[in-house]
Simulated assay, not measured.
Amino acid sequence: MRILLLATLAIGTVSAAAPARSQTNDPSYPVCLHVYGKATYYECRYTSLAQCAGSASGRAAQCVLNPYVANALESPRWRQRRYRGAY
């Protein structure tokens, strides 16, 4: 009886969990909506600045390039070559 109760409790806990958020580093969405307020967060699901601007209108938010994709696209070799001549 105890095992049945624990199994039921485990199934209920798993099914009540919130869905996982989508990845913010998807290069298919190069524009993010940076929302300000009690919780500051990024919504990275826009393909253009104009599309994002429509969602940002009237909100405490601004459209920015996806910071996760911008940093991922820069190759480490390029950074090394850029600074090699300075020394």
Rank of each mutant, 00 (worst) to 15 (best):
T24W: 00
V31K: 03
V69G: 03
Y29V: 01
S57M: 14
Y46E: 00
V31S: 01
A50K: 10
Y41E: 06
A53V: 00
A39V: 15
E74R: 12
S48K: 05
P19F: 08
T24S: 04
A56N: 06
C63L: 10
V35C: 02
Y29K: 04
A50D: 11
V69E: 01
N66E: 05
S22G: 10
R21Q: 05
N71T: 14
V69Y: 03
L65K: 09
C52T: 05
A61D: 02
A18C: 10
A39E: 11
Y29I: 02
Y41V: 08
Y42F: 15
A18P: 05
R45Y: 08
S28V: 00
A20L: 13
C52E: 01
A60C: 03
C63I: 07
A53N: 12
C44G: 02
G54C: 04
Y68H: 11
G37H: 10
R21E: 02
L65Y: 09
V69D: 01
Q51R: 04
K38P: 07
A60V: 11
A18F: 11
Y41C: 02
D26N: 15
V64K: 00
L73F: 02
N71V: 11
A70Q: 15
P67I: 09
S28M: 08
H34K: 13
S55Q: 11
A50T: 13
A20V: 13
P27E: 08
A72M: 14
A60M: 13
P67R: 04
G37S: 09
Y68E: 06
S48V: 08
E74M: 10
T40E: 12
R45L: 06
P19L: 07
R59H: 11
C52V: 07
Y41R: 13
A56C: 10
T40M: 09
Y46Q: 03
Y68P: 02
P27K: 10
E74F: 06
N25K: 06
Q23E: 08
Q62M: 14
G37T: 13
C44V: 03
G54W: 00
V69F: 04
A60P: 03
V35G: 00
A72V: 10
L65R: 12
Y36F: 15
R59F: 04
P27R: 11
K38I: 09
S22K: 09
E43P: 00
Q23Y: 04
